[in-house]
Amino acid sequence: MNYDVVVTCAVTGAGDTVGKHPAIPVTPKQIADAAIEAAKAGAAIAHIHVRDPKTGKGARTVEYYKEVVDRVRSSNTDVVINLTAGMGGDLEVNDASPTKPGPNTDLVSAIERLAHVEALLPEICTLDCGTLNFGDGETIYVSTPVMLRKGAKRVQELGVKPELECFDTGHLWFAKQMFKEGLLDAPPLFQICLGIPWGAPADTVSMKAMVDNLPEGANWSGFGIGRNQMPMVAQAAILGGNVRVGLEDNIWLDKGVHASNGTLVDRAIKILNLMGARAMTPDEARKKFGLKKRH
C-alpha cells in the first residue's frame, strides 16, 4: 500500500468527448483553467493535451501548448506540467486500400512529436511505448522501437522526465529495454494505462502483472478509463503506486452526472483518504519523481 500518493489529472485528452460532455476543455484558456482547477483540488500533476479551438479535435500545435503553459506558469497555482508527446502517431488503415493512409491519419517522426517539448521544456512529457490497435475501428497508434529510441534520447538530452505510457505488457517490456540501454535516467517513471481497446484491460490481474514486472526503484502511476477510473485509483494505491484521474479518461462522476476535473480529483483524494493515504504536493512529487523544476 502506498500512503503518500501523487495524483495526476489528465484534463482533456484528444478523444471524441466534446459532444458527449457540456464542458470539455477545448481552448488553450479552458485547458489552462482546467489544469489550475485540478491543482486547486489537490492534483500535483496536470497532464495536458491541446485541441483545435474551432473543431475540438486533438492537435499538436506548438502555439496552443505555449498559451496553455504560459497561463499555468503565470498563475499563482503550483502544479507539475506534464505535456503529452503522443500526438502525431495516428495511422488510419483502410482495409480496401491498405497502402493508402486514411483521411484521419496524422503520422510524423519521433522528433516532430517533440516540437512543443523542445520549445517549452515541461517537467514531464509522455512517451507512448509501443504500437497499439487504438479502439474498434481502423486506427493504429504507431510508435516503433526506432522511433522510441530516438524520442527517448532527445527527451533525455532536454532534461525532461519521460512518463513511459504502457498500454500493454509488450510496451512495458520495451520501456525496460530502453532503461537497460541507458536511454532513460533513473528513477524511471511509468504510467500503466488500462482499459483502452485493445490494450490491457482495467482489472487487478493486468495491473498487478505489469507492476510485478517494473524495474527495481521505478516510480509508477496507474489508471483505468470510464467506470473503472475510481476502482483503479484504489487498486493502484493498494499495489504501491500513484494515481491518475481526469476528463481525458472518464467524463462521469456518478451515473447521469457529468464530472469536472476538480470533482474527479476530489473524489480520488477522498478514496485515498478513506484508505489512510494522502495526496502529495507538487514539490513532494518533484522530489519523489526526480524532476527538474522549470518555474
Rank of each mutant, 00 (worst) to 15 (best):
M1C: 07
N2H: 07
D4N: 15
V11P: 02
T12W: 01
G15H: 11
V18W: 02
G19I: 11
K20T: 02
P22Y: 13
P22I: 12
A23V: 07
A43V: 12
A44W: 05
I48R: 11
V50G: 04
K54D: 14
K54C: 02
K57F: 11
A59P: 03
T61E: 15
V62D: 00
E63S: 13
R71D: 05
R73D: 12
D78W: 08
N82G: 06
T84F: 09
G88V: 08
G88Q: 09
D90L: 14
D95E: 15
G102P: 07
G102K: 10
L107W: 00
R113H: 00
R113Y: 00
L114C: 01
L114S: 00
L114G: 00
E123D: 14
C125S: 15
C125K: 02
C125P: 02
F134S: 10
G137C: 03
V146Y: 10
M147S: 14
L148T: 09
G151V: 01
R154D: 00
R154T: 00
V155Q: 00
L158T: 06
V160P: 02
V160F: 01
K161F: 08
P162S: 09
E163K: 03
E165I: 10
C166K: 02
C166I: 05
F167Y: 15
T169M: 12
G170M: 10
H171M: 14
L172A: 01
L172C: 04
A175I: 10
A175Y: 02
K176E: 13
F179A: 15
K180D: 15
E181M: 09
E181L: 13
G182F: 09
L183E: 13
L184C: 05
D185K: 12
A186T: 06
P187Y: 11
I192G: 04
C193K: 04
C193Q: 01
G195T: 11
W198R: 14
A200M: 06
A202S: 15
K208R: 15
M210Q: 11
V211D: 05
N213P: 00
E216C: 01
G226D: 11
R227V: 12
M230T: 05
M230S: 02
P231V: 05
V233M: 06
V233A: 05
I238L: 15
G240I: 13
V243L: 03
I251C: 04
I251W: 01
A259R: 07
N261M: 09
L264V: 01
V265H: 04
V265I: 08
A268E: 06
I269F: 04
I271H: 03
L272N: 05
L272G: 04
L272R: 09
N273F: 00
L274C: 06
A277F: 06
A277R: 05
D283H: 12
E284A: 07
A285T: 13
A285M: 04
R286K: 14
K288G: 01
K288R: 15
K288V: 10
G290D: 14
K293H: 13
R294W: 08
H295Q: 08
